[in-house]
Design a protein around this nucleic acid. Structure first.
Length: 772
RNA sequence: GGGUUCAUAGUCCAGUUGGUUAUGACGUCGCCCUUACACGGCGAAGAUCCAGGGUUCAAAUCCCUGUGGACCCA
């Protein structure tokens, strides 16, 4: 019989035809019936070219989750969305057009942002399609669409009415480059070289000096207390006395507080509004009157006297100079200071009191711990990231931002009495340009309103993604069937933001968990283990890699390289060598395509042996699939296929399958077993490498797609795996012996088959041409 | 300072509840076209399982201490 498969290698070009076939026959259409499985897909952010190869690997794996669920008979909702709100596109647009957002017409600026996003988004969608994602592309959503933003606004209005939103004037993390308040989660810390200035403070009514070391001398004008450690004997004599602030010449009291470290500087610390978070805590605890020394423009305010109007850095230089001129500096040390900076703009953040909207979260912490404890994490260890974060929440969530490209806060203020009003939920509101939907102030009865100009923190949008995909408030029946959703896949760096905020918001709105499972992935790093970044030049563009090697190769690499939850290395060379496995699978199939498919047969010991090994592997794969850890099935399938099935079994039964000196029954048993193993392998590999498996499945076994099939089950066969070691060792011995004697593999040789292997003797004799 | 986590051949990685000679891949080096595959086959070299201590008849595996890295928090 002529082999059905002619080519000697898998051609990734075929992927395009298969993709079209899936699309034309709506292979992955979701029906909200039976057992449903809903994925809260992370909508990727098109922040620039190229898309991160680690992200592409991540989405390939999310698709494996979807396909795994389908192969266990579930109806899978795998939404595809694009996240389009937030700072990065604003910064990208500013740079691209050489403009400043706050100096540009708002409507004009928004248009430029949207255009920039469209281009980047198109490429992303193309990569996702090429990767073979079985998602719902026909209904892909954008977080800046009217429908999405109206949901964000509606959920805000709901929480507002529940009394969970308030305005407060509080010290805020402020990024003066981007001109906006930022949440704790957006702050990163960097070691920055800075001067630690030892300044001399005169003690009032005494000739004593107290030395205080600080990295922020420009905040002297905002100093309201000096603290020393109560156990620090060096300073016990000045406690309770007043010190005179150098240059400023104002008096402040010296107090004791345990947060003053004896080892740092001189042991005495000045408390200013606000040098760092510890200052904020001390002002609150000691009930000090705050002095606002730095303005929103990043310059010193009037209270700084001669330094008013200078930028923080300039003011620092100037005041150090003045201190030195007046002989008030003891010494200056150059140190590396761990400085909080804005994750986005990389500018040092300032702590400035500002009026912002807050969403209450402190009182939800216990409830979220309870929900969190019920969510199954894959891998389990990453639940700890959430729990640690919950432990450290101290303030409510500031949700307002002074930015343009985001969902507008739907509030109108009465022009007369400033009372805020929220409109009815369900529509998309743009208060900065829309006429007020409120006609009369509920407080004073006035009829003129002014719209809010600020937008929400982008996590306000992202945190309702499970509600959006399950059609919350849009389609009750659909929502009932799909919420809580099944699983949230995401990377581990945004557990404390996206994962946490989603649980918070969904709990506040529905009282339920957003999902039952969370699947947490590590980062993709380069081949040496360092983070990829544009500045280092070690970024790998996924598109050419996928075009060169094909999606299946990329996917199998992703599965076999990434151990769930751990960081993984990306190297083109590794991806290239993965291709060899697909080649192996292809050629095994090519060999089998020369034999008819036989549905049942009376198997021989050799057949029973490989079927028993197959059974064992199926059970192992199941464990991996159950945990959505594709490393487990991909590596065990590869090892079985290459090192047992191809290397030993196929070689052992080749003679029998070609039927030179065997009975018809024996021949059929070999052919039956060969097909049995291959078809099982194709089913197991279908979620990982959907293209090649579907092609081979349809060529060899069916006129229907493999992706409507179910996983094979372990058959609890009699265990023959105890022979594996002896068989492989015997084969190795023969090969070695022939090599020693300089014989070709087909030459005959005289060797004894060990007693244990007598039941396999006929196959072994034919395989090695034994004469004994 | 606290937490999570990691440490196994030149490189990457496996090692389930402790049990003979530590898994596989990449790379390297030999030999080989053998009727599925040279994108292949066979073989070889390459590991003080981070260090020290403890538990045990027995430790890569469990416990303690330390060192080094990654990430998070303060």
């Amino acid at each position: 019989m002529e082999p059905k498969i002619k080519e000697t290698a898998w051609n990734p070009e075929i992927e395009k035809q298969i993709l079209k076939q899936w699309e034309d026959s709506h292979t992955y259409e979701f029906k909200p019936q039976g057992e449903v499985f809903v994925i809260d897909t992370p909508p990727p952010y098109p922040s620039g070219r190229p898309w991160h190869i680690g992200a592409a690997a991540h989405y390939a794996q999310i698709d494996m989750i979807a396909r795994t669920a389908r192969m266990t008979g579930k109806n899978v909702l795998f939404p595809i969305g694009i996240d389009r709100n937030g700072l990065p596109v604003e910064m990208y647009t500013e740079k691209k057009h050489g403009i400043r957002m706050h100096e540009t017409d708002r409507a004009e600026f928004l248009k430029l942002c949207a255009t920039a996003l469209d281009d980047l988004e198109a490429e992303m969608i193309q990569i996702m399609k090429n990767l073979g994602l079985s998602g719902n592309f026909s209904e892909y959503y954008r977080t800046d669409s009217e429908q999405y933003r109206s949901l964000t606004q509606a959920t805000f209005i709901e929480l507002w009415k529940k009394g969970l939103v308030y305005i407060a004037n509080r010290p805020n993390n402020y990024d003066w480059i981007t001109g906006t308040t930022i949440a704790d989660a957006e702050i990163i810390y960097e070691e920055i070289p800075t001067k630690l200035v030892y300044m001399k403070f005169k003690i009032k009514d005494s000739d004593k000096n107290l030395t205080i070391a600080s990295t922020r001398p420009e905040l002297l004008c905002a100093c309201q207390a000096i603290i020393v450690n109560p156990e620090d004997e060096r300073h016990s004599d000045v406690i309770g006395k007043n010190a005179i602030i150098p240059v400023i010449n104002r008096e402040v009291q010296v107090r004791t507080h345990p947060s003053a470290e004896k080892e740092f500087g001189s042991g005495a610390v000045m408390v200013c509004s606000y040098g760092d978070q510890n200052d904020v805590a001390l002002f609150r605890e000691l009930k000090l009157q705050e002095i606002v020394a730095i303005g929103k423009n990043g310059r010193m305010t009037e209270v700084a006297g001669p330094y008013a109007g200078l930028k923080v850095k300039q003011a620092r230089e100037k005041i150090i100079e003045d201190l030195q001129n007046q002989n008030l500096v003891e010494k200056i040390e150059n140190i590396n200071h761990r400085t909080p900076i804005s994750e986005r703009s990389k500018a040092p953040i300032e702590i400035i009191p500002m009026e912002e909207y807050y969403l209450k979260q402190k009182e939800s912490v216990e409830k979220i711990k309870e929900l969190g404890s019920k969510i199954v994490f894959h891998p389990a260890m990453h639940k700890q990231i959430l729990m640690n974060w919950l432990e450290s929440i101290t303030i409510d969530w500031p949700i307002s931002r002074r930015r343009f490209y985001g969902t507008e806060i739907p509030i109108w203020y009465c022009k007369k009495c400033s009372e805020p009003h929220v409109p009815e939920p369900g529509k998309y509101y743009k208060p900065w340009t829309d006429p007020s939907p409120i006609s009369k102030c509920t407080k004073c009865g006035a009829t003129e309103f002014v719209g809010e100009e600020r937008t929400f923190d982008t996590w306000m949008d992202s945190s309702v993604s499970p509600l959006y995909v399950s059609k919350y408030s849009r389609d009750d029946e659909f929502f009932k069937k799909t919420y809580p959703t099944t699983i949230r896949p995401q990377s581990k760096d945004i557990v404390r933001t996206w994962l946490y905020y989603t649980i918070l918001r969904c709990e506040q709105l529905t009282g339920l968990t957003p999902w039952n499972e969370a699947w947490i992935m590590g980062y993709g790093v380069d081949e040496h283990g360092t983070k990829m970044s544009k500045s280092k030049g070690n970024v790998i563009d996924p598109l050419p890699v996928i075009q060169k090697f094909g999606a299946d190769t990329f996917r199998f690499w992703s599965a076999s390289e990434i151990n769930l939850g751990y960081d993984f290395r990306c190297s083109e060379q590794k991806i290239e060598t993965t291709k060899k496995f697909l080649s192996k699978l292809w050629n095994i199939s090519r060999f089998l395509s020369g034999f008819p498919v036989i549905k049942s047969a009376k198997t021989t010991p050799t057949d029973n042996w490989i079927l028993s090994e197959l059974d064992k592997m199926v059970a192992e794969c199941k464990k991996g699939f159950d945990d959505y850890n594709f490393f487990v099935p991909s590596t065990s399938i590869r090892e079985f296929t290459w090192n047992l099935f191809a290397a030993h079994y196929i070689e052992m039964v080749k003679g029998r399958a070609y039927s030179s000196s065997f009975s018809e029954e024996e021949r059929d048993a070999a052919i039956f077993t060969l097909h049995k193993v291959l078809s099982t392998l194709l089913l197991l590999l279908a979620p990982i490498t959907p293209f090649i498996t579907d092609y081979l499945w349809q060529t060899l076994y069916s006129d229907k797609t493999v992706h409507k099939e179910k996983f094979p089950q372990s058959e609890n066969r009699e265990d023959w795996t105890r022979f594996t070691k002896t068989i492989t060792e015997f084969n190795s011995n023969v090969w070695n012996k022939k090599k020693e004697l300089n014989l070709s593999l087909k030459d005959s040789i005289e060797m004894n088959i060990p007693g244990e292997l007598q039941q396999f003797a006929k196959d072994l004799q034919a395989m090695h041409n034994l004469t004994s």
